[in-house]
């Protein structure tokens, strides 16, 4: 017993020393591998495929960061995290970066001491109902039975929404998305509520997708984004600007196919700075000149990543909506590269 207490004290001291020491960027470079906290079971966003390779919208961001920092998109170790373990894993340095559809909230930012460096997907909670229920607005759901995942923010949002509209509901608690979909299809509840992206993915796989509609009301704001630890701003900047590079690339029409050509032929000084043919933005981040070029070359710009994983070409068929560029009426906006 005494020995373990002694060892514990030693390790705690070492932990403090470690935190005070090198920053995450140096750690990642020294290790040669980026540890990225990931989801293992969210369709389109992050999950291993039949060959065990991680694929998805969130996964692509991890790969882009690895390419920018280490020069090789394959040097990512995806650490599978659950809803319970994700924040501890980030706080205890088990992962360098958490990209696991985690909502940016006040308490996570301030109390848990994380930085959400950007919002890579603007989500929100919606409702799915069967068409023959004859409901066209969430405000008509008074007295409905609602399938709801327990222990999530969606549960709280649901209570708030019904209270604010002076309506009542009967919750049918489900443990996860598959059970929710099952109960909803079996008729155990009138409506199933979760993030709109999840509803779209569920609906896409239903045998009679046309008989189900997603109601227009979005009752919560769920800005999902990559998280890093508080206080390591150098690393936070690397992740933030890697993401912005993907946004800016879409804005300037730089994509996976034409990136080499654009890099040599462009006359636009902003693109030149972005791709490292002019200026030295990389050095300011502690990286080399080609960091952003490599990040974009992995799976393309933000729009390409969106389309390949969750966009209209995929079975999930999510519209860009709030996630369109600011030039097209969305919220995705990258500050200038200068």
């Amino acid at each position: 017993m005494k020995k373990s207490v002694f060892l514990g004290t030693l390790s705690a001291a070492a932990l403090l020393a470690g935190v005070a020491g090198a920053g995450t960027l140096e750690d990642v470079k020294a290790r040669g591998v980026l540890n990225c906290g990931s989801n293992v079971g969210l369709t389109g966003f992050g999950a291993p495929d039949a060959n065990g390779e991680y694929q998805g919208f969130d996964v692509a961001l991890c790969k882009a960061v690895a390419a920018a920092v280490l020069g090789d998109a394959s040097k990512v170790k995806f650490v599978p995290l659950t809803g319970e373990t994700r924040f501890t894993a980030l706080a205890s340095s088990e992962v360098d970066l958490l990209v696991r559809n985690s909502t940016w909230t006040f308490s996570r930012d301030v109390d848990l001491k994380f930085d959400v460096v950007a919002t890579n997907y603007y989500d929100g909670q919606g409702f799915m109902v069967k068409k023959d229920l004859g409901v066209s607005s969430a405000k008509e759901l008074d007295g409905a039975t609602v399938c709801i995942q327990t222990g999530t923010t969606t549960e709280l949002n649901l209570a708030d929404f019904f209270k604010a509209n002076n309506m009542t509901y009967t919750p049918v608690n489900v443990a996860d998305d598959s059970e929710g979909q099952r109960q909803y299809l079996a008729g155990a509840c009138d409506t199933y509520t979760t993030d709109a992206s999840g509803l779209a993915a569920s609906r896409a796989t239903m045998p009679d997708a046309d008989n189900h509609i997603i109601l227009p009301e979005i009752i919560s704001k769920e800005p999902l984004g990559p998280m890093v630890r508080h206080g390591d701003n150098v690393w936070g900047d690397v992740v933030r600007w890697t993401f912005f590079a993907l946004i800016a690339a879409e804005e300037y029409g730089v994509n996976k196919a034409n990136i080499e050509e654009v890099a040599t032929t462009t006359t636009n000084p902003e693109i030149k700075r972005l791709l490292g043919t002019e200026g030295d933005l990389g050095a300011m981040l502690g990286l080399d000149k080609d960091w952003a070029k490599r990040a974009i070359a992995v799976s393309g710009n933000y729009g390409e990543i969106f389309e390949a994983n969750i966009g209209s070409a995929t079975p999930i068929k999510l519209a860009r909506g709030l996630n369109a560029l600011w030039t097209q009426g969305g919220l995705q906006y990258a500050p200038p590269f200068r």
């Binding site: 989801n39 293992v40 079971g41 369709t43 999950a47 495929d49 979909q181 993915a201 995929t314």
Partner: peptide, 17 residues
């Protein structure tokens, strides 16, 4: 639970219970 979640995340097998 682990592998099953992975399988269900595949759009081809989503909804299998």
């Amino acid at each position: 639970k682990g592998i099953t979640a992975v399988v269900r995340a595949d759009i081809n097998w989503k909804g299998i219970y």
